[in-house]
């Protein structure tokens, strides 16, 4: 089923993004390869969104490099992203998924139903996407991203504005998707979520990668003061 090429491993080497005098991302080196989800944690403004956009190929680096499956400047064929506030096209829920399928030349009808079912929206395909609730829209955005049959899926704080039930629904889907072999890279500022989902955890602070370790290790033996403070619930400023 999978295309012969993949966007994995995704390698950032000293990736730096500056906006004028401000350095938003500061020499971040990270590798995302097949395996359990990677959780990006860090306070607001630490650069999580910027890192995800750059990894998706949507933001050019000021310096450093990114490669996907060993290639630079690869087209984002096997990558997908769900933005923090996903924008639904002014179409039905099914048509939103169909649009993403068409963009990748994947055959339609049955796949739309499968994806709707996967995110718990079976039978809601004909509803206008913009009339769905926040949690439903977030799940539809997930289905739309999965329509691209990604090797790597970026999720930017997908549960930031959701209640516990909707959050659980999203986390269940993320586990399901990861179990099917999709590499998930997800930002969150919810440490509990990082514990529940994380294969590995990367802590960003002021645009720098402070610590990157397997989840148990990150929470049990944080190596840096920033990580200890962050885990202890201190305010990182």
């Amino acid at each position: 089923m999978r295309a012969p090429f993949s966007d994995l491993p995704l390698v950032l080497t000293e990736a730096t993004i500056a906006a004028g005098p401000v350095t938003i991302l500061d020499k971040v080196s990270l590798m995302f390869d097949a395996g359990p989800p990677t959780l990006l944690v860090g306070p607001n403004g630490s650069g999580k969104t910027t890192l995800l956009r750059a990894a998706m190929g949507l933001l050019p680096l000021t310096s450093g490099r990114i490669s996907w499956g060993g290639r630079d400047n690869a087209s984002p064929a096997r990558r997908a992203i769900v933005f923090q506030r996903p924008v639904m096209l002014r179409r039905s829920a099914a048509a939103n998924i169909g649009y993403a399928l068409a963009a990748t030349d994947t055959p339609h009808a049955q796949r739309i139903d499968e994806l709707l079912a996967l995110v718990g929206l079976a039978g809601m395909g004909n509803r206008p996407a913009r009339r769905l609730s926040g949690g439903e829209q977030q799940r539809l955005a997930l289905a739309r991203a999965l329509a691209r049959d990604p090797a790597i899926l970026f999720l930017d704080e997908p549960t930031a504005s959701l209640d516990p039930a909707s959050t659980k629904a999203i986390e269940d889907i993320v586990r399901d998707v990861a179990a099917r072999g999709v590499k998930v890279v997800m930002s969150t500022h919810d440490l509990g979520q990082a514990r529940r989902l994380g294969g590995d955890v990367a802590l960003l602070h002021r645009g720098r990668l402070i610590e990157h370790a397997p989840a148990e290790e990150f929470f049990a033996q944080p190596r840096t003061k920033e990580a200890r403070d962050f885990i202890a619930g201190e305010l990182l400023v």
Binding site: M56, L58, S75, I81, V87, L89
Partner: peptide, 20 residues
């Protein structure tokens, strides 16, 4: 302005953008 990020993420080309 509303759609540009999503369409960029979906890899939609210039003609596809206009049509959409």
């Amino acid at each position: 302005l509303e759609y540009r990020d999503e369409l960029a993420a979906l890899g939609v080309g210039p003609l596809g953008r206009v049509a959409t």
